[in-house]
Design a protein around this nucleic acid. Structure first.
Lengths: 130, 130
DNA sequence: GTCTCGACTTACGTTAACGTCAAGTTTTCT
DNA sequence: AGAAAACTTGACGTTAACGTAAGTCGAGAC
């Protein structure tokens, strides 16, 4: 790792993503590496952002949402309103995730019930008979 | 409801789906209503299948999966192998759903932790600093 | 000089489950 | 009969996050 700049290949290995992904994120303005001639060079800042993006993905944030959050952050306002918005967004996402989980849990229970009632599973998959 | 046959509109109201959806399912060979001239007429059997399809969707089955399950069922073999396969498919789906839920639960806990640690939320969204 | 390697750009392909016209036909109402 | 309703069949549009192929280019290796 030269003076803290990395090539696209190094980035891919470090974060386990494909070059396509990095270029895609760049096209979506989530990251903006330097150029040395044609080649992309990723700075520490880029790595920080990518890390956040990937973390956001684990939380189920869409790329567009992450872009907005990162931009909010960048605009400074470190100690004020913007931060609240970030937290607010996270809170909303959390609520969504919980609801999603609850719905899933319901479906699981239903399906499990069908299965546990043994032959009654058939009933679940039997078109109404005469 | 004439002699147990329903028009597309009646079906839509009964099951709360759009005509497009019914035609789409037909194109995908999930349902096959009769024709009276041009018009589709849905029988009891069609309604049964549609009901199963919608139920399957709640369980997270893809339409293609439901088509296969329905076909398996139709092939008769009521008391034999085919049924086991249906149950098998359901069991697999259940496992998938549980895993999905667990992953979601993990992400929720992580995110909640970030939020609960108050200002540390910032850390989560802060690019690595000097 | 030429080969090869990695990186680059451009742009179409993928998947699911329909939505949304557009345009034609048929049925129903008046 | 004539218009409005309801039905029909295409067929393209949508969304997300990349995959994949095609063709180009500069830098070393030989």
């Amino acid at each position: 790792m030269d003076q803290d700049l990395m090539t696209i290949r190094e980035m891919c290995e470090a974060f386990d993503v494909t070059p396509r992904t990095l270029r895609f994120y760049e096209a979506k303005e989530l990251i903006s590496p330097f150029r040395e001639g044609q080649k992309r060079l990723y700075s520490r800042r880029d790595r920080g952002r990518l890390k956040l993006i990937l973390r956001g993905k684990r939380f189920g944030f869409a790329l567009e949402e992450m872009r907005q959050l990162l931009n909010l952050y960048d605009r400074g306002d470190q100690k004020g309103e913007q931060l609240k918005r970030t937290i607010e967004a996270a809170r909303e996402r959390l609520a969504q995730m919980e609801q999603q989980r609850d719905e899933l849990t319901e479906a699981i229970d239903e399906l499990r019930a069908q299965l546990e009632s043994g032959a009654e599973m058939l009933a679940a998959f039997r078109p109404a008979a005469e």
